[in-house]
Write a protein that binds this DNA or RNA. Structure first.
Lengths: 240, 240
DNA sequence: CGAAGGGTTGATCAATTTCAATCGCGGTGG
DNA sequence: CCACCGCGATTGAAATTGATCAACCCTTCG
């Protein structure tokens, strides 16, 4: 199976065989992490860039009150900020949510790769922009969407991201996240998200089972979410 | 008075006189905008990079329900994403909140400037990282902080950002934003933020008057906010 | 078999929104 | 100069949403 990182970047810029080979080489030795294992913690000195090849990962922060807020989900193909090494210390932690295969690429190596392969650099910048768009969408969700809208919106986002990397089946996709994890991402309680999921199931829009989501009525789900896929920038400028 | 953009970037990397001169030249012809004027709207084709020299600007999005969510405040010295031109269309709007002086720099011009001035490129990347850290902090605030905490946290952030560019006085700084604007940024109601501000005033932590904020008790404010300034990365790696 | 983690449900409590009025100040036209 | 207007700020009361507290169930796994 192809390297998902290469696959994802291929969708963001035209890559030559040499570009792809260089990327594969850089991520050839992934390491296995188990669920709940931290890749790096708040306060640590930033190290290499992480590239997720298999499994799910999240960025999160624990507040003084002990509650947790997840700020981003990374799925196969996603990578952490390339310029992170410029900072003195991490302002949040990164953790595997499932067992995961993760490659590390040193900043110098990445720098060299990007300057030798402009297409790769361009793809990385685009990926960064998409990630920022996702963060802004989260801010909008948390600030102004009701909880059913918020849940529906996240599911739309994750479905499209999963589809981009070929992880979806027939109106369905694997979502190996507990309701508690989803609650921590959406700023809700596990109890409350459970009720919201029930409500969404009853409307016939979607259903979440252990480990996977079924989109029963895509039109209805998108409508509930007020979802506009524009922000995921699936159409990049170079393709238009 | 020095160009605030140059001033801000100088704080993020060592810039030579030539670096600074190039930056000043690129932002030498700002244009005036009035309050509530959009610089660019959702759906528009991305144009040049905007650099705020005077006044306040925000990124925002209007939802189907008609409510507005502000996703970021830009103050003098701040700039919009450098790689924005890679995207097909804007996924949000940008608007002046006060009368503002704003320079535009074309992508090509910026590209040339950065490749000719590596220090400038480095400073721009750092600025980008700080902006991302701010977005993550907003996600955490909206998801897991109570409304008094959220308001206090935003004020801490804005105070430090204002101080960085020399806009603060004796425990006080200019904040030319209406309560409605603050509410749209914090995901609350104008009515509710008004009550929260009253509460914060009564605790003696801070007071907001028309156009300015007074930090009455910095320690108490930071404590209420659970504020950790680490994420603003005022200490960059190059300085340590 | 027993423990642990996740999921589900009911009842109650607290935080926010919503709806409605009122107030105050700066600017404008008469 | 003064009445009037409009926006932002402020306050009260009612209606909603979501959090909290407490069980209980189910499946997995050692």
């Amino acid at each position: 199976m192809a390297n998902r990182f290469v696959e994802k970047l291929s969708g963001l810029a035209e890559l030559t065989a040499a570009d792809k080979a260089a990327l594969e080489k850089a991520t050839a030795r992934p390491r296995r992490y188990v669920a709940r294992q931290d890749l790096i913690r708040e306060g640590d000195e930033p190290g290499p860039m992480f590239v997720v090849l298999e499994g799910w990962v999240c960025r999160y922060k624990i507040l003084p009150s002990g509650t947790r807020q997840i700020m981003a989900f990374l799925m196969p193909g996603d990578a952490c900020d390339l310029h992170i090494k410029l900072l003195a210390e991490m302002d949040h932690s990164i953790q595997a949510l499932t067992t995961a295969m993760i490659a590390t690429v040193s900043r110098d190596e990445m720098q060299a790769l990007m300057s030798g392969h402009p297409n790769v650099a361009s793809a990385m910048y685009s990926a960064q922009l998409v990630d920022e768009g996702i963060m802004r969408a989260w801010i909008v969700s948390m600030g102004r969407r009701s909880s059913p809208e918020r849940v529906a919106h996240l599911m739309c986002e994750l479905y499209l991201r999963a589809r981009n990397i070929g992880l979806t089946g027939n109106g369905e996709f694997a979502l190996p996240l507990s309701q508690l994890v989803l609650a921590d991402a959406l700023g809700m309680t596990a109890v409350h998200i459970n009720r919201v999921l029930k409500e969404l199931r009853l409307t016939g829009a979607m259903a979440l089972k252990r480990g996977s989501v079924t989109i029963l009525d895509p039109v209805k789900l998108v409508q509930i979410a007020g979802f506009d896929e524009n922000y995921l920038h699936r159409r990049m400028r170079h393709a238009s």
